[in-house]
């Protein structure tokens, strides 16, 4: 069963780190990722840049907004797509994630968007 771990970071947290600190954090995440791979559960992972653009189409009208978005306090900073046997297993891997120390890990099972 695939599970997505979404790293939900406080908006602006990245700017508080020096480049060295930023790289150190990134290294930790790479090591975590390698550990998942070594255990045969990692399907895909990546980090996301902070800058984003929002788009919606309403009544055929396209609207595009450039960030940062003052109303949002969080951003999705990265993701890990895991192949796990159970939800508990996904949670166990999430608990190991270094980012759980400074961000929040949202654990979601993949599946159709209707019930």
């Amino acid at each position: 069963m695939p599970y997505m771990l979404l790293i939900v970071e406080p908006q602006g947290q990245r700017r508080l780190r020096s480049p060295e600190e930023g790289r150190a954090v990134y290294e930790q995440m790479l090591a975590y990722s390698a550990g998942l791979k070594a255990r045969g559960v990692l399907l895909e992972s990546n980090s996301l840049r902070a800058e984003s653009v929002r788009l919606d189409m309403r009544a055929g009208k396209r609207s595009v907004t450039d960030g940062p978005f003052t109303e949002s306090k969080e951003l999705i900073g990265g993701f890990f797509l895991l192949d796990c046997a159970t939800r508990e297993q996904a949670l166990t891997f999430a608990a190991e994630c270094p980012a759980a120390q400074w961000a929040t890990i949202e654990v979601r099972e993949l599946g159709p968007c209707y019930d």
């Binding site: 255990r39 559960v41 046997a85 159970t86 508990e88 297993q89 949670l91 166990t92 891997f93």
Partner: peptide
């Protein structure tokens, strides 16, 4: 117990 079960599946081989 569920956590331990999950953990066992992940860690036992190592």
């Amino acid at each position: 117990h569920r956590t331990i079960d999950a953990l066992w599946r992940i860690e036992s081989a190592r």
